[in-house]
Design a protein around this nucleic acid. Sequence first.
DNA 1: CTTATTAATGACCTATTGTTCAATAAGAAA
DNA 2: TTTCTTATTGAACAATAGGTCATTAATAAG
Lengths: 199, 199
Amino acid sequence: MSPEMRREMILEAAIGYFADHGFEVQIRQLASKIGISPALIFKYFETKDALIDAVYEAVFESRWQEDWVGTLTDRSIPLPERLIRFYRSYMATVDDRNWIRIAMRASLDNSVMTRRYLADHVSKILVVIADEIEAAPPGSAFAPRSMPSPELRIEYVWHLHSTVIYYLIRKHIHQAPVLHDQDELITLIVDQFLHASRP
Amino acid sequence: MSPEMRREMILEAAIGYFADHGFEVQIRQLASKIGISPALIFKYFETKDALIDAVYEAVFESRWQEDWVGTLTDRSIPLPERLIRFYRSYMATVDDRNWIRIAMRASLDNSVMTRRYLADHVSKILVVIADEIEAAPPGSAFAPRSMPSPELRIEYVWHLHSTVIYYLIRKHIHQAPVLHDQDELITLIVDQFLHASRP
DNA sequence: CTTATTAATGACCTATTGTTCAATAAGAAA
DNA sequence: TTTCTTATTGAACAATAGGTCATTAATAAG
């Protein structure tokens, strides 16, 4: 097998295996799962830690769509519609067992990855959403009654965002039964969230 | 030192250490952290797994207040006030780094503890909240416009509850900056949540 | 002070686990 | 086929880690 394919195969297997069983699983077990010898893994990744780093890289990479901010700020479209479109796209990108579990493990292990992701990416989105709500034309169905104080602004939007993220945690980490129809969920909570903001 | 105190000391140290570094840390490290020999730990806990089980027991025990349902269903008090009181008490009980982290680790490790906790305790609360919202007198400020379909009922209340739980995950697992004033947070989101339900 | 009891330990055992490396298999090129 | 290259492995090493046990230290009773 070509080195590129083999490396990819090992990396993919490691992502799934680490997501399921944690980073402490033995290289031996991972190898036997793939059907190769443990030694071969060390041909492609210097050490176990290097493999873990590669898993982090692969999983955190491309978990972000450049057009999300564009979708949210396109004021030619009504705000509810924008939020629903955004969260549908967001769900499609992040509703992934391996991603959710590894991001959570990263935080528990005190890795900087998830904290950086939250700081760099998620908080950007939250600010945009807060801005768009505030910018809604007064008198429109979803203009805010009164936006909370600056310190509460982002926490206010977390109310919406938390629901989506924790839905994924319930699904992929707690493995509890959740509503299957995600479009319905998104419509429900965006509607709920915005109606509380009406004048 | 008396056996009871020693056992308690080991257990408490294990809770903190496992919460921080995961269940894979060495007994040696835990022992040196406590300042005792590794062998002593095995005098009080048969095996490492027995210690882990004891940690689970200790952490999941008494994470539930019997009077919560009573608080939520006392219709002599306005619903917003009931929800605010409940979530203040809930926060006081669950806003604990060790608890949040170990409950999350339990789920990732496929332990039944957290799933059972969600099924037995949390979902009970969510049903009660849904019932109370629906029972709000028509025309009151927070009577529901229209309660969603039966399948969406609980998911609807998750919108409120998720925000509280994910706030704690952000704080204790992601260790991201969060709003310090929890009373303010609770007031904000309960208010937000109920106002969306008004007629 | 002596002795009995037991909390506590240090040294050791064994299995596990990351990692290495000489040897082998497989496949392409000549 | 022969040769060259390289993907792959089996076996082993060294450090790690759970667990045991004979011995020691501490404490309280007589």
